[in-house]
């Protein structure tokens, strides 16, 4: 499992994340963290007229899993309705990360962007 986690694709996202930064005039603006390990994310998103996710950016710091997951997530959720986001689960995130099965200790790292967006959409 460990070799899966540190393969090229995830390391590329870690070192060169997609959509890194903060969106101006965002509809969703949320900060979320995993206090036990210090992973932290500031996620901003714009929604289209139907309420679908149109654009997402993130800033943050954390481990390879949380940061690569955040980077991939900013593309994976485009076009999703709030209901579709709410229905996303760990399975979807593991599939997004390339079909890996995370150990219990890393699940929360991988879920950081999803949990942030769910919370942000609830609040918006």
């Amino acid at each position: 499992m460990t070799s899966d986690l540190y393969r090229e694709q995830l390391l590329d996202h870690y070192h060169n994340p997609n959509n890194y930064g903060v969106l101006e005039g965002a509809d969703v603006d949320v900060e979320w963290d995993n206090p036990t390990c210090g992973d932290k994310i500031h996620l901003t998103a714009k929604l289209d007229a139907e309420g679908r996710v149109a654009e997402v950016m993130f800033e943050g710091h954390g481990c390879v899993v949380s940061m690569a997951s955040s980077s991939m997530f900013t593309e994976r959720v485009i076009g999703k309705t709030p209901e579709e986001v709410a229905a996303m689960s760990l399975d979807d995130i593991q599939e997004m990360l390339g079909g890996i099965r995370l150990s219990m200790g890393r699940v929360r790292c991988a879920l950081l962007p999803l949990n942030a967006l769910k919370r942000g959409m609830d609040a918006s």
């Binding site: 460990t2 540190y6 390990c37 992973d39 710091h61 954390g62 899993v65």
Partner: peptide, 12 residues
């Protein structure tokens, strides 16, 4: 490296 990554990589 984040501590989680340190622990995972040395675990291998």
């Amino acid at each position: 490296a984040h501590p989680h990554d340190i622990a995972s990589i040395v675990d291998a």
